[in-house]
Design a protein around this nucleic acid. Structure first.
Lengths: 210, 210
DNA sequence: AGTTTATGACTGACTCGTCAGTCACAATCT
DNA sequence: AGATTGTGACTGACGAGTCAGTCATAAACT
């Protein structure tokens, strides 16, 4: 059992690594509990239990319940921003951009636990003005801005006929939101083919008929 | 004496009327509190205070906190269903239908407190499977069904070129959802012209360029 | 090397505020 | 009067946050 969690041999990985692993375990458990019960409904006792840690340990890593929640969102959604900036920079045909965007969404958000984090932002955002602002500044404003810039270029090139789209980039993103919420609320009654919907959406925006 | 609430056969301003007024006051107050703090975060003491009623009175009208919440949703969203059914029955051009639909949405949902109720369903739905199911059956399934039927007719008539739209009626409704969520989360940073967005959306769906 | 001392990560029983739900009594009707 | 409706102090459970104490490991010493 080399490299077992017991770590009979320590070398460089003594306390620091162990602490980081615990932090991660707590964040993982917190995501499960917050997703299932919401911020107010989640119990830190349960988070501790699920993380295999004593309740007090949580407070060694996070100031309080709210800090744990915010840290969770930042940790999960932060890395996503890079991908956004990247798309904006490129000067590809709009169809390619939108297809990549949809693909990124389905693979990196809808298909992962980030979907639950996104749902948490949506459902708890109103009660965390600070979090909503962070999310707006770091993700939404940039995303909308990038989208708007790309659409304007595409309109100028004649790739997109609907000039109004650049005034309402939200229209481009709307189906993604629906997908996230539908998954949590109604998928058990009526499964939604998200990838198919995104494809249809792009075809409509770009006026490809069938 | 069984049908208590319906028996308003007494004096014009009898007890039945007073009771109904109290019930309404409680529901109003509950909407405020649930909207502001979510289901778990709302306090019945505050609901009572806001309604100008003693806490015990709430329990004369509603079994418990959850029943109050569900009753609130049912009361506010129930009447809406009628409007939906009506649109479905008509055989108007698709553009007219969509314009009326958008108008109905902006005036009767987005512009009223029903917007908050809708947000509550979205944000709390996962924690109330029963409510989510009610909402799916009574509103979503019917709405999606009606929309699908109308789009199919429109496609057959040549009014709509995107056949895929009938497979994903969610695409038609998506901007409405975005509007509701945007209002609660980001409107203070960046105001969204909802009516304008809905108009643009319809133009895109129906391929009117500008 | 072995032995001792220092460190701080970790524990979990405890405290203390909070809040859904109750109930004995009061007010208001008929 | 009796019946109905309303009240708000009270209770019991629950859960966030604390802290005195434990123990594995690292550092210092011999």
């Amino acid at each position: 059992m080399v490299g077992g969690k017991a770590a009979a041999s320590e070398t460089r990985s003594g306390r620091g690594e162990r602490a980081a692993a615990r932090r991660t375990a707590i964040l993982d458990a917190a995501l499960d509990e917050f997703s299932a019960r919401g911020f107010a409904g989640a119990r830190l006792d349960d988070v501790a239990l699920r993380a295999g840690v004593a309740k007090g340990t949580i407070y060694l890593h996070f100031k309080d319940k709210e800090a744990l929640f915010q840290e969770l969102v930042r940790t999960m959604l932060g890395p996503l921003i890079a991908g956004l900036e990247q798309l904006q920079a490129s000067d590809l045909p709009i169809r390619t951009v939108l297809e990549r965007f949809a693909d990124l969404f389905v693979r990196e958000i809808y298909g992962t636990r980030r979907r639950d984090v996104a749902r948490l932002v949506i459902t708890e955002g109103t009660r965390f003005p600070e979090l909503a602002e962070f999310y707006y500044r770091e993700v939404v404003a940039r995303g909308i801005g990038a989208m708007r810039a790309m659409i304007k270029r595409a309109v100028a090139r004649g790739e997109v006929r609907h000039e109004a789209l650049s005034r309402f980039p939200q229209l481009v993103v709307a189906p993604g939101l629906v997908a996230i919420l539908w998954a949590g609320l109604f998928d058990r009654f009526d499964h939604l083919d998200v990838a198919g919907m995104m494809r249809a959406h792009i075809d409509i925006l770009l006026e490809r008929r069938e």
